[in-house]
Design a binder for these strands. Structure first.
Length: 350
DNA sequence: CCATCAGACAGAGGTATGGC
DNA sequence: GCCATACCTCTGTCTGATGG
């Protein structure tokens, strides 16, 4: 892969930067909404500098959608982040419009020497809510978790440690679950014609407890049986087991770190669980089926949220990679693993 | 009352296709 | 080479019918 950046890439980067700058300025100075036309002008002007054959029509549509979505999403004042530094000194729109602004919760930079990570959070909406603005295609919760988790990122299309990195760092500042929102401000382009109101954000929750602990709580038990009819196999099975029966089983048996539904079904944990269900209700096909879909749901829950064990295993992974790099420094890099192929640009190497 | 089965349906994920 | 899109498959849900 060439290091040269094509004009198209350049254009994309610039566009992303401009949208981010607008988000930052709007968050800190919401009255800018009155000067939206001016913002658009500046935006288009700035884009012309990178590329002389941009499609004005398309850019205007994107602008209308993107700015509208960002305004709709951002409301109220944010939180002054402890442990963060203000990230960017300049804001294109603020400068062009000669607005003096003080950012206290946008573009928050952190560098965590202990954990050897660093990054910049687009917006800290409140102490328990981080936000990242994205211009690309919307990704599902499952995709986000898969691409950030150490055990599964290699199988994902776009490995990206950002989510775990930010959460890992931020969890030092707060107690209790942290929400991480990816806001895809352009993802509903083209929907308005059909009148569809498509979701433009993906929210991941990081529970500051292990999955094992979380799984034993009523919340997960409820998740397994809610929103289905009384006749549902899984619901009938789990209701026979009862919450206490379910909780006891989880407390007695260690849940294996397996993220694939099929593989999970093969584990001892799974067969024991099915056995326990049969004991509670009787040896019927629907009980086995109900227990199996429950196991699937448990894995699904795990694959759409993040837990303490994910952060821990990420921390170990970082340590491992850093010592590998130190080894390479001494003995030379192996030829087959180019540094650029490793999704770890953001790891601190000093 | 409860268990079982088949068939229709919806949503999510994965994959192949065609355009740029 | 990239990407968005359409298509296919898998999974789960619900309904209605049958029979204990």
């Amino acid at each position: 892969m060439s290091q040269l950046i094509s004009e198209a890439d350049d254009e994309k980067l610039k566009k992303g930067l401009l949208f981010h700058d607008f988000a930052e300025l709007y968050f800190n100075n919401p009255e800018i909404e009155e000067k939206l036309d001016k913002v658009k002008e500046i935006f288009i002007e700035e884009m012309r500098e990178v590329s002389d054959d941009i499609s004005l029509n398309q850019l205007e549509t994107e602008l209308d959608h993107g700015l509208k979505n960002l305004i709709k999403f951002i409301e109220g004042k944010g939180f002054s982040g402890n442990g963060y530094k203000t990230g960017s000194e300049e804001n294109i729109f603020a400068e062009a419009l000669e607005i003096d602004f003080e950012a206290s919760s946008t573009e928050m930079y952190f560098k965590n020497n202990d954990k050897r990570i660093k990054g910049k959070i687009d917006l800290i909406k409140d102490p328990h809510h981080l936000v990242d603005f994205k211009s690309g295609r919307k990704k599902s919760r499952k995709e986000v978790v898969k691409s950030t988790r150490v055990e599964t990122f290699e199988d994902s299309k776009f490995p990206d440690f950002q989510t775990l990195m930010y959460l890992s760092n931020h969890s030092e500042n707060v107690k209790g679950p942290i929400k991480f929102t990816y806001f895809y401000f352009l993802s509903d382009l083209g929907d308005s014609l059909v009148g569809k109101d498509s979701e433009t954000k993906t929210e991941i929750t990081f529970y500051l407890k292990t999955f094992q602990k979380k799984a034993s709580e009523t919340e997960l038990y409820e998740y397994l049986i809610k929103d289905v009819k009384k006749s549902n196999d899984r619901r009938r099975t789990l209701e026979a087991l009862g919450y206490t029966g379910y909780r006891d089983f989880i407390q007695e048996n260690k849940i294996p770190r397996v993220f694939d539904k099929e593989d999970f079904k093969e584990t001892e944990f799974a067969s024991k669980f099915i056995e326990r269900c049969i004991e509670a209700k009787g040896d019927y096909k629907y009980v086995k089926k109900g227990a199996e879909t429950a196991l699937n749901k448990i894995v699904e829950y795990r694959n759409t949220n993040l837990f303490q064990d994910d952060v821990e295993s990420f921390g170990e992974f970082v340590e491992e990679k850093i010592s590998e790099i130190q080894d390479y420094e001494e003995s030379g890099y192996p030829v087959k693993e180019k540094a650029s192929e490793l999704p770890m640009e953001d790891l601190i190497i000093e």
